[in-house]
Design a protein around this nucleic acid. Sequence first.
DNA 1: CCCCGGCCACTACGGCTGTAGTGCCGACAG
DNA 2: CTGTCGGCACTACAGCCGTAGTGGCCGGGG
Lengths: 204, 204
Amino acid sequence: MSARTPGSAPVRGASRAELIADTALALLAERGMRGLTHRAVDEAAGLPTGSTSNHARTRLALLEAAVRRQAEREAAVLAPDELPDPAGGRASLVDGLALTLHRFLTGEAHRALLVSRYELALEATRRPELRAYYDATGARFRELLSDLLSAAGSTDPERHTLSLVAWCDGMLFSCVAGSYSTEPPTREELRAGFAELLGGTLDG
Amino acid sequence: MSARTPGSAPVRGASRAELIADTALALLAERGMRGLTHRAVDEAAGLPTGSTSNHARTRLALLEAAVRRQAEREAAVLAPDELPDPAGGRASLVDGLALTLHRFLTGEAHRALLVSRYELALEATRRPELRAYYDATGARFRELLSDLLSAAGSTDPERHTLSLVAWCDGMLFSCVAGSYSTEPPTREELRAGFAELLGGTLDG
DNA sequence: CCCCGGCCACTACGGCTGTAGTGCCGACAG
DNA sequence: CTGTCGGCACTACAGCCGTAGTGGCCGGGG
């Protein structure tokens, strides 16, 4: 089935492990938890039967690989940091946040990443082993945001961070799986939302 | 196994259909999509093997029953309306919202209802048949909120409603499956959050 | 009284899933 | 050159899942 000969190198810079984990995330987004099986990954990735089962010996191992990769992929979307304005003022903070959220909502790959993220978050509810990675990356991101809010004059950075993160997460979830039956919000709308939220938290 | 004789009436006002749907929701929250199976419902509900399979002939039918019941249960939590203050001013609006959210976050039953809700929302991403109920109840709730915001002086009720709902949803999701590793927020914290959010949107 | 229709317990079956085992092949160290 | 070691393809198997079919029970209408 595969176009490459059995012994040759994997796809291109992507290790077999990455290919498997990426395919697992794609399946998670497309078919949900019930669609993520060892054999489905084999098939979707174009690997010979048994490859996934061999690489991730148990289902939990497969989920762990998926979560690890999820964190990497999210970091990659967040990293091209238009986000960090050291002390660029509130306007640039609002702009950066709106741009980042907007990027998540446009582009099919990013939307899929959001679905798999929530799918895994729900599963982590029941599997303590998955929580670790999740909490770690989340905490790092929140810390970063908290610094930004402090610099912008927040009187209660911790709570305000939680509030901001909740708004972002809720917005993303709504657009991907929730009330937003219509088109996703435009960048202006996101900017307005952020401006209002930050106005309330920072100006009191 | 069951304590009641085969021919006697079901539990107590709860029809067999309700029992099955409620058990399905409980399983969804406790074990996720993969844990929701016909046989698992039978076992968890203490029904003879095959009952669920017989009542919800296909898996989709079982999910539809679960979604329908989910809407009912949520309405029941929302309905004891401390929420609707016709024109009680912003303070009472903030109070009502904070109280409602706080009630969802305290009480194991309500938390479980949140998990099953997000589980079903994700599934609805892939099953158009499930979207119907979901969208309908969501739209009704948003309309109600929109009226409240208009009465409170919102200049853009539609967008502000979406923003408010996103904040609530994000807050709930965070507490149930997300960044909130610590204790859930207190009612004062929720009140503060709402006050800030509404301050930003209404005073602009 | 009998027939009929709905509800329910039980069973059958084909298919898929998780997991573990086995042997091959190529890489690399000595 | 040779031994060994990790990765990989392939296979085996037991268990579970969705779905459909069958026959019995019971209550209501004629």
